[in-house]
Write a protein that binds this DNA or RNA. Structure first.
Length: 771
DNA sequence: ACGTCGATCATTTTT
DNA sequence: TGATCGACGT
């Protein structure tokens, strides 16, 4: 039974068997962190700890799933199923589902993703009569999100002098009000955004002692993965949960802290030892992943940062290749180099597709790699970008399901109230929202009682039909499963058919996506017991909806497929590949131009580079381009400062990859330039962004007409063929023909300067000049 | 009421 | 470059 301890080194074994009391495991890259975590949990269980009493929090669903699977493997029983393993967000969402009523939320609360949240922000900004251009939803969202991650509520936000000053300086004095209105609206909608899942969990534990007591005693052993990426909200929650038993085990690597933009603070891991009385610290420094050359480069790079937990990675592997540094002429050449190089490596060293990864700083960089891989017929998978559930047709479908489960969800309601088109237009929607705000009821309640709100007869009928339909769906919740309901909704609303009838390429794709959604729902209800965490599987539609919002793109694609993997460095955290390409090592891009203003920012960029390097097991290629397209215009970039920070004797700058066919494409000359740089390095502060394309506004409209001073629209009923008329935009012309029905008359008019046009008389304004 | 078109604008990273 | 948004025509 103790076999599982055999494959561990001394430190690892100690980390596994030190089960009681607070423990910090500082796990360098590739030091077997996951192995330690999983073995530790298995060890706990082997020594009589009930799976139900163990909580393990990770940052990605992928990591959680992998851990659960490995533990199950070690144990050889189904007991692992009862563990509470998941991301912070998904575990808390699950707990909150059972406790939401305490906080005044419906138990089937909606989870708003970033798009939903921004949309709500836009709404409240408009309702506060503020300029959306100035109070950009994106910026507001980020600001509010940071506040939430620091556990600063709306009231506190509005009263904080320091925050006020900041907002004044940013010329956004109304941020506090926006935050307040946003929080209120989410609550009214029965919805939580991602950050709320943390905040509300904290509130729950803080304000309800019996809830705190319940979960403190449920979770006797707590493990936190990637502790360096936790934010203050997460920190406080862990503090509360762990207070009773203090069996808190955190695992992390301060050198890999890369999520401060999301509110994570590296202080959590640096200060952990001060949080409890008797913290044990175990360092895992032996690396089992990379060659010494790769490790040395990583170690040297990270030395440029201050305030580390001291540690040095070592390995007993043979030294391996040098790191290849390749300069190309353009971003397209960079892509071409990488795909050529992959071809070469496959031939020469018999690598398979899935042994390669291409990493980059920003998602936008994927394009050139994608193109070259496609041309070279190398199969690839891109992780990141928009996930399946962000696609319009999927969001529309889900909006129906959301509305059925939670009619207070105004975002969902607005999304589908007129999709497919059923004659409930903007005017009506605005009116309904106005009533709702006025009377402090939900938009849905307004629609339910539409008859009392003075809508026109036709609109009223459309509303009534819509309300009746949603209610009929709602009544299915009790006796039909999630799949049956979803299928019925798609059929009844007619929009699946509408997609089916669209035979364009995109239309076909959209239809297929919708079918895939239905399949996923079916799979959800058919999966025996749940994957998420302990307890009885909840197969309700509501449970399904809450789960999918927390899925990312990476969770939906198969990491084991035999394809080259493309992703941002952030997304690559925790992964490893035999051959790794890191692209775009240029000033302004990596380090990002957004993150070079403070030491802290720059150090995070450097940690990111460290993460990138340490993904590689055998071979590492770093590339950068002279010129690159950015927002459609050509920019020139200096090589990244990080290049100079690497030990130059471990770099191979002469590598030309591919074969001679590449020499013509321009990047072969790079090494000469590089050698020059080496003797006379450029000043590091200089970055150049040269826009090669001048912005040119080209006007090429039709002949425009300025209406006469005495222009007064005539009654369309007076119009007859042959009359001479004036149109506000098109100028003078003659009526050629009158047609259309009585309530929708259409006139064909031949204009002197703009040719013949059909004019709908209900909307266009015409003046009769003479009969 | 609704779709189309052109102007505008933004891009760091993500649960 | 590409996505989004308001104006405007129908």
């Amino acid at each position: 039974m103790q076999d599982y301890l055999k494959g561990l080194n001394d430190n690892q074994r100690q980390a596994v068997t030190t089960t009681e009391g607070p423990l910090m495991i500082v796990a360098g890259a590739g030091s077997g962190k996951t192995k330690v975590l999983t073995t530790r949990i298995a060890h706990l269980m082997a020594n009589g700890v009930d799976a139900f009493n163990i909580l393990a929090l990770t940052f990605t669903n992928k990591a959680a799933a992998e851990m659960k699977e490995r533990i199950g493997h070690i144990l050889g029983t189904g007991e692992a199923r009862n563990l509470y393993i998941g991301t912070f967000h998904s575990v808390f969402a699950r707990i909150l589902r059972g406790e939401a009523h305490r906080l005044g939320y419906p138990n089937s609360f909606t989870i708003y993703d970033t798009d939903d949240a921004k949309s709500v922000i836009k709404t409240v900004v408009q309702e506060l009569n503020l300029d959306v251009q100035h109070y950009k939803p994106n910026a507001c969202y980020n600001r509010i999100s940071s506040a939430k991650n620091a556990l600063v509520g709306p009231a506190e936000y509005a009263n904080d002098y320091h925050i006020q000053q900041e907002d004044m300086r940013a010329n956004r004095p109304m941020m506090g009000q926006i935050y307040m209105a946003y929080a209120k609206r989410c609550f009214k909608n029965g919805a939580m955004d991602f950050d709320d899942l943390l905040i509300k969990m904290y509130e729950l534990l803080k304000s309800f002692p019996e809830a705190l007591h319940k979960y403190q005693h449920k979770f006797k052993y707590i493990l936190i993965d990637e502790y360096q990426d936790t934010n203050p909200a997460q920190y406080e929650i862990i503090k509360l949960l762990g207070a009773a038993h203090e069996n808190v085990c955190v695992v992390g690597d301060d050198a890999q802290s890369i999520y401060s933009f999301r509110g994570a603070t590296i202080q959590n891991i640096l200060q952990f030892q001060n949080d409890y009385d008797d913290v044990k610290v175990i360092k895992l420094e032996q690396n089992y992943r990379s060659t010494p050359n790769i490790l040395n480069v990583a170690n040297e790079i990270i030395k440029n940062n201050k305030g580390q937990i001291p540690k040095t990675l070592f390995t007993d592997q043979p030294s391996g290749d040098n790191i290849k540094l390749v300069r190309t002429q353009s971003d397209n050449d960079e892509g071409k180099f990488v795909s050529d190089s992959i071809m070469e490596q496959k031939l020469r060293n018999h690598y398979t597709n899935k042994e390669f990864a291409i990493l980059y700083r920003t998602n936008a960089q994927s394009r050139s790699f994608e193109e070259s891989l496609r041309r070279a017929n190398i199969p690839y998978t891109i992780f990141g970008g928009i996930s399946f559930y962000q696609r319009k047709e999927i969001k529309d479908y889900i909006a129906y399901l959301r509305l059925i489960v939670n009619p207070q969800d105004e975002e969902a309601l607005k999304r589908i109230i007129n999709y497919p088109v059923r004659g409930i237009g903007k005017t009506t929607i605005d009116k309904a929202i106005l009533y709702a705000n006025d009377q402090s009821i939900s938009m849905w309640q307004v629609l339910e009682s539409a008859a009392y709100h003075g809508f026109k007869a036709g609109t009223l009928q459309a509303i009534d039909e819509f309300v009746t339909m949603i209610k009929s769906f709602h009544s299915m919740l009790g006796n039909k499963n999630a799949y049956d309901i979803a299928f019925h909704v798609g059929k009844q609303t007619g929009f699946v058919k509408e997609l089916f009838n669209d035979k364009s390429t995109e239309g076909v794709q959209r239809y297929e996506n919708v079918q895939e959604l239905l399949n996923s729902i079916k799979e959800f209800i058919e999966t025996p017991s749940n994957e998420e965490s302990g307890e009885v599987g909840d197969k309700s539609l509501s449970a399904y909806l809450q789960q999918i919002t927390l899925l990312t793109d990476s969770d939906q694609k198969d990491p084991n497929a035999d394809t080259v993997k493309l992703m941002t460095i952030h997304a690559a955290k925790g992964l490893e590949y035999p051959v790794v390409y890191v692209g775009g090592l240029e000033e302004g891009l990596f380090p990002s131009g957004m993150s070079i203003n403070t030491r802290e920012e720059l150090e995070e960029e450097r940690r990111l580079f460290y993460v990138a390097i340490t993904r590689a097991k055998k071979k590492l290629f770093l590339t950068y381009a002279n010129t690159r397209y950015k927002f459609g215009s050509l920019t020139q970039n200096e090589p990244s400062r990080f290049i100079d920070e690497m030990p130059q004797d471990l770099l191979d700058r002469s590598y030309a990859g591919g074969g001679l066919k590449n020499q013509s494409s321009g990047w072969g000359s790079g090494s000469a330039f590089d050698r020059m740089r080496k003797t006379a390095p450029e000043p590091k502060t200089e970055r150049t962004f040269v826009s090669a394309v001048a912005a040119g506004a080209v006007k090429g409209k039709e002949v425009t007409h300025t209406p006469s001073a005495n222009f007064v629209p005539s009654d369309p009923a007076q119009l007859q063929e042959g009359m001479r008329v004036e149109h506000q935009k098109f100028g003078f012309g003659a009526v050629v023909k009158l047609e259309g029905s009585a309530h929708n008359p259409v006139a064909t008019i031949k204009f002197d300067q703009n040719g013949e046009k059909k004019i709908m008389l209900n909307y266009a304004k015409l003046m009769i000049v003479n009969a």
